[in-house]
Nucleic acid binder design. Sequence first.
DNA 1: TCTGGGGTCCTAGGACCC
DNA 2: TCTGGGGTCCTAGGACCC
Length: 428
Amino acid sequence: MSKRTSIALIDANNFFVSCERLFRPELVKRPVIVLSSNDGCVVSRSEEAKALGITMGVPYFKVRDLCDRHGVVAFSSNFDLYRDLSRRVMSVIRRFSDSVEVYSVDEAFAEVDVSPVYYEDFAVALRDEVMHVTGIPVAVGIAPTKTLAKVATHFAKPKRGGSGAHVFVQPADWLPMLEHVSVGDVWGVGYRLTPKLEAKGITTAGGLTRQDDRWIRKHMSVCGLRTVYELRGVRCFALGEEPELRKSLLHSQSFGRAAADKSTVHAAVSYHARKVAEVLRAEGAQARSVYVTIRTGRHGRERYSAFDGDTLPLATNDTLDIVGTASQVLERIFKPGVRYAKAGVLVRDIVPVGLQPQRTLFGETTRSRTTLMEALDELRHRFGDRIHIGSEKVGMSETEHWRAKHDRLSPRYTTRWSDIRTVGAGSA
DNA sequence: TCTGGGGTCCTAGGACCC
DNA sequence: TCTGGGGTCCTAGGACCC
């Protein structure tokens, strides 16, 4: 007898806002938003903020007046806090399932290993336990495929009148619901395909399931075909296995102010290269290809962007190697007279440490600096991100004006001793 | 003045080889 | 010298996700 399992999707409600509210309970029921890096765009909104018409991804400056008028509380992104709370939510989910795929900071898929008659109970218990342990509200959807689990979660959300749990077992459960899902809301149908589908008269997820396979394959590639199969209940996307080694790693940031001088851009590139090396070491990985990306703002009259890289003879996670390579690439692609607004460093061809000989043809060994890097990492853990390399500094008088602004940052309540909240007990 | 950061996969086309 | 099929590998670009 084959046991049919289903997939649960656990999705935190307005995650970043929920994290901020956890430590500022007086903000519950008030409009709250969280901004992206550089306080650029709105990336998370409370229901009250959504009701004011603040849309996802809107530039903050466009809604600042509206926010001021309605007393909307705006936070800069506090990723240390969100990452830590995410970790706690995921650990609760793992108590409910042996097979969990962390899909993003605020979402996870989990295998549901109970009989379908208990799906509803499972979803409700999971929702309540996450709330009880972490204080983060989540919605749980259960269905035979990932794409349908996304739809189920959609209907579980409080803003759609859901209770935080929604379950699809039979096609009769989901087929009528698909008529009420816009085709653009389907997981895997983005802003490019949506107008094409609508032009063909396909406006809902239900319409998509009735479409001819050959037409889908031709116009949406195999990716689209898989999505359509999943909506019909045929599983095409397996639950993610072990966290494989990542394929690429990017560290980048928009500048607080645009910069034209090479030393400033070089400082930013050096910083991102160092951060990339640190992440590689933390993950026990090395990379062979180092790329640099620099560009102007995307909205001004002046537009320039460049992306290029070098491949090293040996994979490395050494800060000085990666910074040095990135600096050489920057020399090639830097164009004088351009006002740059963003820089980043990306590495590819990532392998686990120890998978290659530590010696080149010429007998150079990369081992010699390993101890130095270990010492740097140790210093960083003890004293924070204060150890820089020389090229990150622009000059004595120059402030680091490429660094992003985050004027509305909340304290790092859970990851920094100095930011831990003090709670008074007894007399007030 | 002010528009994020970090990923994945697929496909077409070119280089190169037999 | 020219022609051509067929395979592999790499890369850039497109589309999607959060």
